[in-house]
Amino acid sequence: MRIHTGERLYKCEECGKAFKLSGYLKTHMRIHTGERPYKCEDCGYACNQSSALKTHMKIHSGERLYTCEECGYACDHSSTFKRHMRKHTGERLYKCGVCGKAFKHSHTLKIQRRMHSGETVQM
């Protein structure tokens, strides 16, 4: 029922963050303790959540969950795939508030802002 009511009984004494389930607090505490119980047997990478290890293992398996139907590009992260798809759609999410120019990538907008402020731009 706590999931439905939003009640959070388990509170972190380090930072004050509260959780609905004790297991969530236990996982959270690994941030403070530095515990990394999940370890990759292939390369030694260690992390504090099993989901992070599962994602990491895709590096070794070569698994590619996202494939572009237009060009065949394949990758293992949804964020990488979304960024790739902007090449086909022409979508430009990052707009300069000064000149109104729009860019596909946030780093390009940062360069544009530096140009407006007179900062030296390094490429």
Rank of each mutant, 00 (worst) to 15 (best):
C12K: 09
T80S: 14
H105K: 14
Y10C: 02
K104I: 14
M85L: 15
T67K: 15
M29L: 10
N48P: 02
G100Q: 00
M123N: 11
I31V: 14
I111N: 14
G97Q: 11
G97H: 09
E69N: 15
M115Y: 06
S117W: 07
G118T: 02
K26D: 04
H107K: 01
C96K: 05
I59A: 04
S117F: 08
C96A: 11
M57I: 08
F19C: 00
C47F: 01
S117A: 15
C43V: 09
K11S: 15
G118C: 01
I59N: 07
T108K: 07
M57D: 11
G6D: 06
K58R: 15
E69K: 14
G118E: 01
Y45F: 15
Q112N: 11
C71A: 07
R113P: 00
C68R: 07
T120F: 02
K39V: 15
H32K: 02
E14N: 06
V121L: 05
H107D: 09
C15M: 05
F19Y: 15
K104Q: 14
P37S: 10
E63P: 02
T89Y: 12
K39S: 09
T33L: 07
E14L: 03
K87P: 03
K95C: 05
T33R: 04
S61H: 09
R2N: 03
K20M: 11
E13D: 14
H56K: 01
K17Q: 12
M57G: 05
S79G: 01
S106M: 06
H56Q: 01
E13L: 11
K82A: 08
D76G: 11
H32P: 02
C43L: 05
H28K: 04
G44N: 10
M1P: 11
E7W: 07
F19G: 02
R86S: 12
T27V: 04
F19I: 07
K54N: 13
Y45L: 13
L9S: 15
Q49S: 00
M57S: 04
K26W: 04
G72P: 05
H56Y: 03
E63Q: 10
G62P: 09
R64L: 05
I59Y: 04
A102L: 10
K104W: 10
N48L: 01
R30S: 00
S79A: 03
M85H: 13
R2C: 01
E69M: 05
R30K: 01
H28N: 03
F103C: 00
G62Q: 12
T33H: 06
H4R: 07
E14Y: 08
L93S: 02
Y94I: 09
E13I: 10
G34C: 01
G62V: 11
Y38C: 12
A18K: 08
C12G: 12
I59K: 07
R86K: 13
D76F: 10
L53E: 02
K101H: 13
S78G: 00
I31D: 09
I111C: 14
E13S: 13
A46M: 08
H32M: 04
A102M: 12
R86V: 08
S51N: 13
G23V: 00
L109V: 13
L9V: 09
K82Q: 12
G90I: 09
H105I: 12
E70Q: 12
K54I: 12
C71L: 07
I3Y: 08
Y73I: 11
E7A: 11
K26L: 06
G34M: 01
S51F: 04
Y66S: 01
C43N: 10
C96P: 04
L25P: 02
E41Q: 13
K101R: 14
S78D: 03
G16C: 03
